[in-house]
Amino acid sequence: MADNQTDALIEAINFTQMLRASVTKVFDNLADGFQDSQGNEKALLNEFQKSLLAVNNDFNELERVGNGLYPLSVNSPNSVHLSIDPATDKTPLYSQLIQSYKWSNKAHELAGYVIGPLDQNAKLKRSMLIGSTLQAKKLRRVPPSGHAATTVYVDNIVTRLDQKMPDISMSITRPLGSSAILQVSLGKILKAVVALRGLIIEWVTVKGYQEDLYSEDGKVDLWSQSRYQVFRKVNDSATAATLHFYSPHNAELALQSFLHWFQSYKTLFSAPCSKCGKHYHQGSPPTWRDLRNTDPYHDVCKP
């Protein structure tokens, strides 16, 4: 479309030039004057008529081509007004507009060509692009296995962590089949029940040192809350921490980091807040521990 337009324009310009040439010739001839030396008036008249006819022809041609032209900026009729801005030299907006219009038209057209070949490729599988299926298998992520750890493996890891962390003592029970329940006690400060699925922490309940971890029927009590406000707050932070440390690909590290963080609660009652430097705030000691450096903070003093 645009090409047709350009061609027509070029043609029109050519015709204009031809018309000007023929008109100039006629006027040149007229200006020079006809000097009839041989008295051959008829020949002169013929010649004059011929050049007038040429002018006429050129004019007709130009008119024909000119009719075929249409305003360039059909899509942005308002931009036409830019062209009549007298300050054109200062703001070459209109010419740039035309230029970009042409560019975008061209890009659109090329995109039209490209979509054909690309469409064929889109149906190919990605592994084909990489090359061989073997390579593709290597690149695929290993599915997380943290939840599928065997009981022996879990036992080993828990025993090792128990030895590694002097402040924490842990014991494993399996009241619900293969999933382990860790009973963690932290000095004479607090106790916790950690339910594991494989090695992934699924649930944490924090209670006071004097509170019973077993319900009346002798089972480990996973669900009831602590009597004390301070341990309920610790429970909330611990639940948040399980999410923070959650990592199904490296569940052992996640468990270790969680327990390391949890260990910091051995100073639950004795450590002052890192921000305000005080112990007491609204009935509680600093119950929140920073997840990275385990600094104690009050709920309202969190960084």
Partner: peptide, 16 residues
């Protein structure tokens, strides 16, 4: 202070 059983742990908190 009901949650704690070791006086030295919570004395500073109680004092405040």
């Amino acid at each position: 202070y009901s949650p704690c059983v070791i006086p030295s742990e919570c004395w500073n908190l109680m004092k405040e």
